[in-house]
């Protein structure tokens, strides 16, 4: 066979293989979504998303865990976003790559690979017991914040690295100090990328069960958390409870799938908001 035919055959085969793999991943995702929608859509109603759970979780809605999850996201991001972005700014703009920076970077990478249940136990020991925050929205939110930190730091660092050096040069050449340059030029330019990192983290934070089950999420709460020291219900933990702790499976199973759909919709909704916000920022830049 001539070399040309061989090359063409190899090109076609690799194209086919790539398309095949792409189709396979899309199919897996589609299958999961279709299955969840099929099982859960029957449970969705206005009552389901606006009512508190009743009758030992066999009736009523899930507004309490929805609100709890939103509150957890807010608390975790209020902690992780400023800390993560500041850390990334330190790594990328201030550190000179010495031993301390290398150790800190290693620590951040390691934090990313800590199993979430271990993080949950850390949260219990540190936030709940040592800092006396108890099993609360605050403890659970901070634990989730720790979970989000490594992703947020890495994403922010990448975004900062992508800011062209020419922008910094221009600012310094005009007599800008380092902080002025970071605050007025580098951070605004990196912001769309940082937001992307934030969106990824919110999805992760919203869906985690292990870090919150010891630190603040409860089986049942009679109403919304009114202070950061109240414990909360949360969607992923609620799903876990419905799936494992019920005795009336005929009644809880549809609710369980409905809750899963709501959680997915919430995460997707937040991602959409983030993506739109990012697109707007990009356009303004």
């Amino acid at each position: 066979m001539s070399i040309y035919l061989l090359r063409r055959a190899a090109d076609r085969a690799s194209t086919a293989a790539l398309y095949g793999c792409m189709a396979l991943s899309a199919a897996v995702l589609g299958l999961i979504l279709a299955f969840l929608a099929y099982r859960g859509v029957g449970a969705i109603s206005w009552e389901f998303i606006s009512d508190h759970p009743r009758a030992g979780m066999t009736e009523g809605g899930i507004v309490t865990p929805i609100a709890g999850t939103v509150q957890l996201i807010l608390v975790s991001m209020a902690f992780a976003f400023p800390v993560g972005v500041t850390t990334a700014v330190y790594f990328n703009e201030y550190s000179r790559g010495g031993a301390l920076t290398k150790a800190l970077r290693l620590a951040v990478r390691s934090l990313a690979s800590v199993p979430s249940v271990v993080l949950g136990l850390f949260g219990l020991a540190f936030f709940c017991v040592f800092l006396r925050f108890g099993a609360s929205l605050l403890s659970a939110g901070l634990t989730l914040g720790c979970l989000a930190l490594p992703t947020l730091i890495t994403a922010s660092e990448t975004a900062l690295q992508n800011v062209p050096r020419e922008f910094r040069d221009a600012s310094y050449a005009l007599g800008g100090t380092r902080w002025q340059t970071i605050y007025k030029v580098v951070l605004p330019s990196a912001f769309p990328g940082i937001i992307t990192g934030g969106i990824l983290c919110v999805g992760r934070v919203a869906g985690e069960t292990a870090p919150i089950m010891f630190t603040g999420a409860v089986f049942f709460a009679p109403g919304f958390a009114r202070s950061i020291f109240d414990s909360v219900m949360a969607l992923p933990y609620h799903i876990y409870v419905l799936a494992t702790a019920g005795t009336r499976i005929d009644k809880t199973e549809p609710l369980q799938y409905g809750t899963i759909l709501v959680l997915l919709a919430l995460v997707l909704g937040i991602s959409m908001v983030g993506i739109v916000a990012r697109a707007r920022l990009r356009k303004r830049l």
Binding site: E166, F167, D169, A170, S171, A173, V185, P188, L285
Partner: peptide, 10 residues
């Protein structure tokens, strides 16, 4: 200073 490539801020 003015640089080699135009580098206006965004």
């Amino acid at each position: 200073m003015v640089f080699q490539r135009p580098n206006p801020f965004p």
